[in-house]
Design a protein around this nucleic acid. Structure first.
Length: 420
RNA sequence: GUGGGUGUAGCUCAACGGUUAGAGCAUCAGGCUGUGGACCUGGGGGCUGAGGGUUCGAAACCCUUCACCCACCCCA
């Protein structure tokens, strides 16, 4: 029979990695709540049109990376490749926009992109997604960076770089597009095939091209950053001065471009070495026109997402033992009868309880107790039952004593022992 | 979609074209008839990714295919 394996790019998260995932998500939650964010759980599957419209039909994500299929009802549906589109949809659909002036939301869950997997890149990956609706002032941009700084610090990540840029608003972008289309048009024959296409559909993306020829050409081109309109310039300067006040080291990268079309003004990306070429583990930016473009009121927005899988590659696990573990070692059929009562007793009292079903020798039970990290082993055999006692072994100190075989007071008696 | 690398025990890896494919770790048992970690002894565990070919003989060489990894592209 052929073995059934997980799909390409889909994987099982287990062992230490689960601990790291949980650490990232727990710490994120803690700070998000501190900053007033509310968790929202949104669907993994949405109408395909939602992503095409918001992310942009000329982006790689939409052109070739979406898990799109037709459901049995004949509708085209897509596994979300990112969270913002769904968050905006939910923000509008639930009527939050009308109920509150500012909405600070977060959501944690899997995203799906049909890409060739490699280090830090999977077809199913987890994100902590954060969105703020209703604040135009650049102080919120800085507040997000501050929160990110605190989260990463708390996780224990030391080496990373925060890069930022402003991609302007539609007005300054239109002007700039005309400027660079003219610039690139002259050098069109030296551009790669992709970039010639981008020149028509999305000229700003040429700056992100890694082919040497295009890099050289775009390297000496005018930059959007230097051609922002006044309001966008003032906004970005405000953002920078707030990050200075907060004393967060942040690098302006005038060439930083996001892969989704909806971004405006502030964009940022947090990268780290040690991730191979997928070095961005957190990214985001402002999207002041997205809500309106989806049929909502003109509410500005800003958000970011943490790539949990990637961040987990950067942190080391610190497994901490929580609570004590009691293990029951039994010998003989009479002793076996204590398994069920003890399981009830300990679990009812929130004590971790282990035993080895189908156990044979005491030795094998002791080995197993050690392997599961038991700190107390209770030993019961015929001798003990006859004497009305049980043996209590302290695994860390290799010492043992006896207690009465009295289940009603056993928990208290054990507590008394550990206090000594 | 393109390029490179790797597929052998549960895991990490050995084995010049030549007996019955090995080792460490893990696992189980024994040493210790009722006591864990360390140590010693032993056991189980493999269609050498799959299919074809070359050869007296293939884990190895050739072809095909599949899978995984890394990189490009793009992105979290």
């Amino acid at each position: 029979m052929e073995k059934i394996k997980s799909l390409r790019g889909f994987r099982d998260i287990y062992g230490d990695e689960v601990i790291r995932f949980r650490l990232i998500e727990d710490i994120s939650r803690r700070y998000l709540e501190l900053f007033g964010y509310k968790e929202i759980i949104i669907p993994v599957l949405e109408n395909t049109g939602l992503f095409v419209r918001t992310i942009g039909d000329a982006t790689d994500i939409v052109e070739k990376e979406m898990f799109t299929f037709t459901d049995t009802g004949g509708d085209s549906v897509t596994l979300r490749p990112e969270a913002t589109a769904g968050m905006v949809r939910a923000y509008l659909e639930t009527g939050m926009f009308a109920k509150e002036r500012i909405s600070k939301l977060f959501s944690i869950g899997p995203m799906f992109r049909h890409e060739r997997p490699q280090k830090g890149r999977y077809r199913e990956f987890r994100q902590v997604d954060v969105e703020v609706f209703g604040i135009e002032a650049p102080i919120i941009d800085a507040e997000l960076i501050w929160m990110i700084y605190l989260i990463l610090k708390s996780i224990g990540l030391a080496e990373y770089t925060i890069e930022t840029n402003s991609v302007g608003c539609p007005e300054c972008r239109e002007g700039f597009k005309r400027l660079i289309v003219g610039y690139f048009e002259d050098k069109k024959q030296d551009l790669c095939e992709d970039c010639r296409r981008r020149l028509q559909k999305n000229p700003l993306r040429i700056f992100d091209c890694k082919s040497p020829g295009c890099k050289e050409i775009s390297g000496s081109s005018p930059l959007l950053f230097d051609n922002l309109c006044d309001p966008c310039r003032v906004h970005f300067d405000g953002f920078l001065s707030h990050t200075e006040e907060l004393n967060i080291p942040i690098t302006v990268n005038k060439r930083l471009v996001r892969g989704l079309d909806y971004y405006t003004r502030t964009v940022f990306e947090v990268t780290s070495g040690g991730l191979g070429s997928q070095n961005a583990f957190l990214a985001g930016g402002r999207y002041d026109n997205l809500v309106q473009s989806m049929g909502g009121p003109p509410v500005p927005g800003i958000g970011f997402a943490i790539g949990v899988d990637r961040l987990s590659l950067l942190i080391s696990t610190s497994v901490k033992k929580d609570g004590s573990t009691v293990f029951l070692a039994y010998l003989g059929d009479r002793a076996k009868g204590f398994i069920v009562p003890m399981m009830r007793l300990f679990t009812e009292n929130n004590v971790k309880f282990f035993y080895l079903p189908d156990a044979k020798s005491l030795k094998s039970q002791m080995r197993y107790a050690d392997s599961v990290g038991a700190d107390t082993v209770l030993i019961i055999g015929d001798d003990e039952i006859d004497k009305g006692i049980l043996i209590v072994r302290d695994m860390a100190h290799s010492s043992q004593t006896t207690l009465p075989l009295d289940l009603t007071n056993l928990i208290d008696n054990l507590k008394g022992l550990s206090k000594k």
